[in-house]
């Protein structure tokens, strides 16, 4: 059976009569076993794209996904409305950039990201990444996804890609909602950078896109951690909670000066470093450092997830 077939009815994936357990030899099964099935051969020529498409369809058909995206979009909207209704914010009070909002609506997007990245974004990423494998195991659909040869690596990659796409969607939701509400409620004009220089609207939209890209990259490491934890359990809530707790632990450790030697190795260390993109000229150092760090986390936890998932007895 082609995996994508089993996934079309989204949440209500009903297990039917298919070969049950796929033990660890699944990837090494002689291809002859299944080669009579033309569907399988087809899916091997287009490796994983259909699986990815169906994964994204399932992900973005879920009401939970949209509820989280809406909640994220509500953060900058709340900030903007609160600032609009209250008296002007004194410079230096509240979250960074808050006092700039009244002068320029484009800052609402940046302020929204500053406020979201310590908690709200990790929270939603934790839910999505923790659900990847454990969610399928909890629903009892995991073994049906693994009937295809070499299914495990591909399934892991597809699941991770799905979580990464959600990272993009989450960041874009905050940034776009912020810009839209900012344009509606506040004037738009030249943007003052941290260095005190001003840039035009076109340039500042470009910078905002860069910031969104930075934040997305920042969340990839956490997604990989969540993917690994998700392979450890069949209880999705446990994997989600563990991922979120780890992100909070990482941020707490990052705030302890006694552990300064550890800080460059924490995946949350560069989360607020996107401010370097708002300097003149742009300081690319933290972007590169962050990308390397996240790539390291993806490599380590991707390898761990592979080791665990490829050797796991999938019974559900």
């Amino acid at each position: 059976m082609l995996p994508s077939d089993s996934r079309v009815p989204s949440d209500s994936r009903v297990p039917d009569e298919v070969p049950s357990d796929v033990p660890q030899e699944s990837t090494s099964d002689p291809p002859g076993d299944l080669s009579f099935d033309p569907l399988v051969r087809h899916s091997r020529t287009a490796p994983g794209w259909e699986l990815l498409a169906s994964e994204l369809t399932v992900l973005f058909r879920r009401r939970r996904t949209w509820a989280m995206l809406l909640a994220l979009a509500a953060v900058p909207v709340l900030i903007a409305v609160a600032v609009r209704l209250s008296s002007p914010v004194a410079p230096g009070r509240g979250p960074a950039f808050l006092d700039r909002i009244t002068q320029n609506g484009l800052f609402v997007g940046v302020t929204g990201l500053v406020v979201s990245i310590p908690l709200f974004l990790p929270l939603t990423i934790g839910v999505i990444a923790g659900d990847t494998i454990a969610g399928e195991a909890g629903l009892g659909t995991l073994r049906y996804l693994l009937v295809a040869p070499a299914g495990r690596v591909r399934l892991l990659l597809v699941k991770y890609a799905g979580a990464a796409v959600f990272c993009v969607a989450a960041t874009v939701a905050v940034a776009v909602a912020g810009v839209v509400i900012g344009v509606l409620l506040f004037p738009v004009g030249p943007v003052t950078l941290l260095s005190g220089d001003t840039i035009g609207v076109g340039q500042s939209v470009l910078r905002l896109l860069l910031v969104a890209a930075y934040v997305t990259v920042s969340l990839l490491g956490l997604s990989a951690v969540g993917l690994f934890i998700s392979t450890l359990t069949e209880v999705p809530v446990g994997a989600m909670a563990a991922t979120i707790v780890l992100s909070v632990v990482s941020e707490v450790l990052d705030a302890l000066p006694q552990l300064v030697w550890l800080h460059p190795w924490l995946f949350s260390h560069y989360w607020l470093g996107f401010a370097d993109l708002l300097r003149q000229p742009v300081a690319w150092g933290s972007f590169a450092d962050n990308a390397w760090l996240q790539a390291g986390y993806v490599a380590v936890f991707g390898a761990l997830a592979y080791g665990r998932f490829a050797t796991k007895d999938v019974l559900s």
């Binding site: 230096g92 500053v114 941290l194 260095s195 401010a275 300097r279």
Partner: peptide, 24 residues
């Protein structure tokens, strides 16, 4: 370069500007 802030000193000829983004 501070976290989410910056302090600048710019000198051009005899003009010196000090700028702090924290309180603008």
């Amino acid at each position: 370069m501070d976290q989410l802030a910056e302090r600048d000193v710019v000198r051009h000829g005899t003009d010196v500007w000090l700028y702090s983004s924290k309180d603008n």
